[in-house]
Simulated assay, not measured.
Amino acid sequence: MLRFISSFLYSPITIFTAGIVFLVPQYSHSADSEYSAVTEESFSFDNIRFKWGATLNDVSSERTCEKVKYLSKDNVDNCTYRAKEILGFKTKQITFIATTGINTPIYHLSFPIIADEVSTRVDIAPWVQKLISIYGEPSKIDEKINQPFEVNPSRNSSVYANAEWNLENLKVYIAAIEGYRHTEIDGAPYIALVNIKFSNQATLAAPFVDAQRKKDEKLAAMALRAKKPSIFKIPRPLTELGLNNENAGNKHVNLKLARLSTRALSEGSSFETPENIAKMLNNSTIAVWEIAEPYTVILSTKWNSEILSSSDTKISCTNMYPARGPGSMIFYANSISVKGEYKALEIKTLVNHLAKVLKTEIKCQEYPDS
Rank of each mutant, 00 (worst) to 15 (best):
V128H: 01
K197M: 07
V128K: 04
T99I: 02
Q212C: 01
T183C: 11
P105E: 09
F208I: 01
P12H: 07
P294F: 02
V68L: 07
L167F: 01
K197E: 13
A31R: 14
A258P: 02
I277Q: 10
T39D: 00
I307W: 00
F149Y: 15
R121Y: 04
K227W: 08
T99E: 02
S328I: 01
A264H: 10
K233V: 00
G53H: 14
Q147K: 13
A226L: 03
Y81F: 13
G136E: 02
P326M: 00
D142P: 11
Y367I: 14
Y295L: 07
L56E: 05
E217Q: 14
I97F: 00
I114W: 06
F149R: 13
Y160F: 15
I196R: 12
N195H: 07
G101I: 09
L2Q: 12
N334T: 08
K359I: 03
Q365W: 13
F45G: 08
T262Y: 09
S154E: 15
N244T: 09
P326N: 03
D74K: 10
P25Q: 01
N169I: 04
K84G: 15
T80Y: 00
A221R: 08
E217K: 12
T273V: 06
R63T: 09
V357I: 04
V172S: 06
P235I: 10
T301V: 05
A115R: 13
N352L: 10
C79Y: 03
N146E: 07
N244L: 04
N276R: 04
L281Q: 03
W303P: 00
R82V: 11
F271C: 04
I196A: 13
V128Q: 06
R324Y: 15
A226Q: 03
K67D: 14
P237K: 11
V38R: 01
P237G: 03
T39E: 05
D77P: 00
T301Q: 07
A125R: 15
S6H: 12
T349Q: 12
M320L: 15
L358M: 15
